[in-house]
Write a protein that binds this DNA or RNA. Sequence first.
DNA 1: CCGCCAGGTTAACGTCCGCTAACCGGCGTG
DNA 2: CACGCCGGTTAGCGGACGTTAACCTGGCGG
Lengths: 213, 213
Amino acid sequence: MSAHAPSSSAASPRPTRREQILREASRLFAARGFHGVGVDEIGAAVGISGPALYRHFAGKDAMLTELLVGISTRLRDGGRQRVAEAEAAGEPPAAALEALVTGHIDFALHDRDLITLHDRELERLRADDRRQVRQLQRQYVELWVDVLRRVHPELPPERARASVHAVFGLLNSTRHLSRPDTLPDRGATAVLLHDMALGAFRAAVDAHHGRPG
Amino acid sequence: MSAHAPSSSAASPRPTRREQILREASRLFAARGFHGVGVDEIGAAVGISGPALYRHFAGKDAMLTELLVGISTRLRDGGRQRVAEAEAAGEPPAAALEALVTGHIDFALHDRDLITLHDRELERLRADDRRQVRQLQRQYVELWVDVLRRVHPELPPERARASVHAVFGLLNSTRHLSRPDTLPDRGATAVLLHDMALGAFRAAVDAHHGRPG
DNA sequence: CCGCCAGGTTAACGTCCGCTAACCGGCGTG
DNA sequence: CACGCCGGTTAGCGGACGTTAACCTGGCGG
C-alpha cells in the first residue's frame, strides 16, 4: 500500500484533494457499485476530469482498497479503544458492550456510505487486499464476541458470533433508514438502534437458558 | 415484462432452462455484482455459452429485473398469506408477527442470494422496473408495520417502520452467517434469529414507554 | 419424408472503460 | 530568473462487454 496517508483523524477544515476524491468515490461506489462508476465520473465529482485521478491514486482499485482498509481499521481500532477505556475506568463488561454498540452506531450514522461499501464491495478487491480487510473485520467481530462472552460467559462461542453478526445487520440497517421519511433526528434513531441491539443480545442469551415463560 | 413465467411455485424436479439460468445468474450476481458478471459467464454456468441466453431473455437487464420482481413479489405475497392465515385461525396479532418473522427467516435461509440481490442491486434496474420493485418492498414493509402496530398500538408509525427496517437487517444477516464456520444447522440459526428479532421488537416497544429500570 | 422451429453455435460490431502518453501552466526555491 | 515538479489537460490505445447476425442441427407434426 502507499506510504503516507494523511492520517485520517479529526476533521480537517480544508480537505486535501485525496480526501475529496475518496469521499466522492465512496459516495458513488455506494450508490451505483464499484463497477457501475467510471473514473471520469469520480473525477467530475471533484471538479477535475478523468485521468487526473492517477496523480493521486495508482488506479480505481487503489481507491476502493484504501476506503475498505481505512474503514475496517477505524472500526477495529475505535472498538478496541472504547473497550480499553471502559476497562480502565473499572466499568463492568456490560458497559464495554454498550460502548461498542454506541460507537458502531455513531460510525454507521456518520459514515453511511463506507458502512455500505465495506460489506458490499469486498469481493472486488485484489486477493491480498481482500485478505487484509477480512482479517480486520474478523478482529472486530472477535472483539465483540469476547466482550459479549465476558458479559454472558455461558454463551457458546459460535452462538455469540452469530448474535454479533445479526446485531451488525441490525445496526447497519441505518443505511436503509435515515432517509427524510424516517425518524425525526439522528439522536432518536441512534437511541432506538441502541435499545434494539441490546434487546436482541438479551434475547439471544435468554433463549439459550430455558425459554422465558 | 415478458408474459408467461413458469409460475414459480413448488420445486419442479426438472428445472427448465430459464430457471437454471435465473438460478445461476442470481448466484453470480450475488457473488460478484451485476456489473461484475458477464453474459458469457452466466451462459457457461448452465453449460451453454454467451449469446444463447438471448433465446430466453431479452438481455442481461431482463434477468435481474425478473429476479428482483420475483423475490419482492414472493416476499409480499407470502407475508400477506401468513398474516391472513393467522387471522383466519383467530390467533392474536402477536402470532401473525411471529409468522412473519418465521416466514422471512425461511426465505432468507433458502434464497440467500436473492435476499442479497434485492437490497444490493436495486439501483441497477431501469427506472420503471425499479419503481415497481420499490413499491413491492414498500408494501411488504407496511404489512409488517401494520401487524406490529396491531400488537403494540402505542408505537408511533415512524418508530415502528424504523424498527421493522432494523429487524430486516438483523434477519438478512444470514447472508453473512450460514457459512460452515457458524452454527451447527439451519434450525438452530433460524431459532436464534427468531428470538433475537422478537427481542429487538420488544426492546423497541419497552424503550418507548419509560425505560425499564 | 419434409420442413419448421426451438435452441444452440461462432463471428463480428460498436461502445465503453481503465489506463498511458504527451503536453502544459503556475508556483516555490536555489 | 531559470528551473523543476505538482497537478492538471486532451488524445488515444487495448481489451472487455452486451448485443446482433448468420448459420447449423435435431426432433416433432403434418
